[in-house]
Design a protein around this nucleic acid. Structure first.
Length: 215
DNA sequence: ACCCAGGGTCATA
DNA sequence: TATGACCATGGG
């Protein structure tokens, strides 16, 4: 119970505030959440820059755009055909629901169910959007989160929902805390043992950033 | 030439 | 329920 907060404090002390999510508006954050699925953020930035340069960083512009052109804008972010469909489906839903101000009035469980019903939005993307665009206190679970807490011996839970529930029960439900915590876990995950990120005990060695940061 | 990245869907057993 | 194939670009 106390351990999860301790890990947070050590990560924060080691890496400093991360200032997430990178993005000017809630809509841009949501777009980024979809485009960053299994993709390096640097690639997502190029795709978002393409959308902005085309004047298409906008739900109506995306829905109105030629699907093939949309895919070209998204090309640097990888999986561009898939992501063009997903982004379009999301924007259709977003407009049908009346946009950000209307969506913001829904409570978190309803909003989460609605997001998950959009084709191409799974648990992690939905929680990214809930936390960083709608500022709801949900703990975003990703591969780094599982690896970190699993290697620290703080949990053996692997499935998404049980782990999320465990973390939200063990921590104060604070948006700023969850915001910084997930960002720090990602930063830590990107920092470990670069040459051999998959070695069995890579993050348990003294020289490893994981150990320095998390304990 | 390989491995990885801020996942999700779908088919199969 | 739980794997595996698939999607695809850019950096190390």
């Amino acid at each position: 119970m106390r351990d999860f907060l301790t890990v947070f404090e050590r990560l924060l002390a080691h890496f400093g505030p991360q200032h997430w999510w990178p993005g000017e508006t809630p809509f841009e954050i949501m777009v980024g959440a979809i485009l960053t699925q299994n993709t390096a953020w640097s690639n997502v930035e190029r795709a978002i820059a393409n959308l902005r340069a085309a004047g298409a960083l906008d739900a109506r512009a995306i829905v109105a755009a030629d699907p093939e052109r949309l895919a070209v804008w998204l090309r640097p972010s990888g999986y561009f055909n898939v992501k063009a469909r997903r982004l379009r489906a999301f924007c259709r839903w977003y407009l049908a629901e009346g946009g950000f101000e209307a969506l913001r009035r829904q409570d978190t469980p309803a909003l989460r169910r609605a997001l998950l019903a959009v084709q191409g939005i799974g648990p992690e993307t939905a929680d990214d959007i809930l936390l960083y665009a709608f500022e709801r206190p949900v703990f975003v679970v990703d591969a780094y989160t599982r690896r970190l807490f699993s290697r620290l011996g703080l949990t053996d839970t692997q499935a998404y929902e049980p782990l999320r529930a465990e973390l939200e029960a063990a921590l104060p439900r604070d948006v700023a805390l969850f915001n910084e915590y997930h960002a720090l876990i990602v930063q830590q995950g990107k920092s470990v043992c670069r040459p051999r990120p998959r070695c069995a005990d890579c993050c348990l060695r003294a020289e490893c950033a994981f150990r320095r940061a998390a304990g």
